[in-house]
């Protein structure tokens, strides 16, 4: 579904991604792991079209995404839940959700999408008129995921969705994400919660210093003691 081939990205003189390749199949749930500054967010932002690569290629269902802006990529159904949530704090919960359905195709079905999001996250429905900035961290993360769902994703990319959340809110986020994947949502999840993430994903890539250090089935990574020690800090 998504293929990345030899991707190299630089911020000015600093290379943030070197020769990254990976592939994600439809219905997969893939983990993207790695320490701070490894390049995980840069990879997602490059897929989303916020950052343009220096070299390499991203293909979506066989079609190259080279040179496309974030609006086109969004309209293709490649949707990111950004790191740190990045809500519109002075807008209400519902306005935030509706912004997810900003582009025409998603806008046409925004009423159905709202019902769908509220059915997955019932307590957002109670908060629909509240300012997003006034919610708790866990609720804000739900709004961020809900906003992404409003865009009708075919590939959902979550960047550290449990960062800074209480264990309970974090568990809830993981439950919702794996539930969505069970319903057929292709997903990439970036997370520092290695155990939890490996247990809900089928395949994992580990990044280090802008490159892919290793990859393999999540279950295998979880079992391998050598890998656990040197890469995953377990």
């Amino acid at each position: 579904m998504l293929e990345i081939d030899g991707l190299t990205v630089a911020y000015g003189k600093m290379t943030a991604l070197r020769d990254v390749s990976m592939a994600i199949r439809a219905d997969d749930m893939v983990a993207l792991l790695g320490g701070n500054g490894a390049g995980k967010s840069t990879l997602l932002n490059t897929i989303s079209g916020l950052v343009q690569p220096e070299k390499g290629e991203i293909r979506w269902q066989g079609q190259s995404l080279r040179g496309l802006g974030p609006d086109i990529i969004c309209s293709l159904g490649i949707i990111q839940v950004p790191e740190g949530r990045k809500l519109f704090p002075a807008m209400t919960v519902e306005e935030n959700l509706l912004m997810g359905a900003y582009l025409p195709a998603a806008r046409k079905v925004r009423r159905q999408s709202l019902d769908w999001v509220y059915s997955h996250m019932p307590h957002l429905a109670q908060r629909r008129r509240q300012r997003a900035g006034s919610l708790s961290g866990g609720e804000q993360q739900m709004v961020a995921i809900g906003r992404a769902l409003m865009a009708r994703p075919r590939l959902l990319m979550l960047d550290e969705p449990s960062l800074g959340l209480s264990p309970r809110a974090s568990a809830e986020v993981f439950a919702i994400v794996s539930n969505l994947n069970r319903e057929g949502m292709t997903t990439i999840i970036v997370s520092q919660e290695v155990q939890e993430t490996l247990s809900i994903t089928s395949y994992a890539y580990v990044m280090e210093n802008g490159g892919i250090a290793l990859h393999g089935p999540s279950a295998a990574l979880r079992e391998d003691p050598e890998i656990k020690k040197s890469y995953l800090g377990l």
């Binding site: 989303s48 916020l50 974030p70 609006d71 969004c74 309209s75 949707i79 990111q80 950004p82 990045k86 809500l87 519109f88 704090p89 002075a90 807008m91 306005e95 509706l98 912004m99 997810g100 900003y102 582009l103 906003r147 865009a151």
Partner: peptide
């Protein structure tokens, strides 16, 4: 709404097609 969104968080607004 897109105007307000762009001013509250430019990057998120771009991510959703603004």
């Amino acid at each position: 709404m897109a105007v307000r969104a762009a001013w509250q968080n430019q990057e998120a607004a771009r991510l959703y097609g603004v």
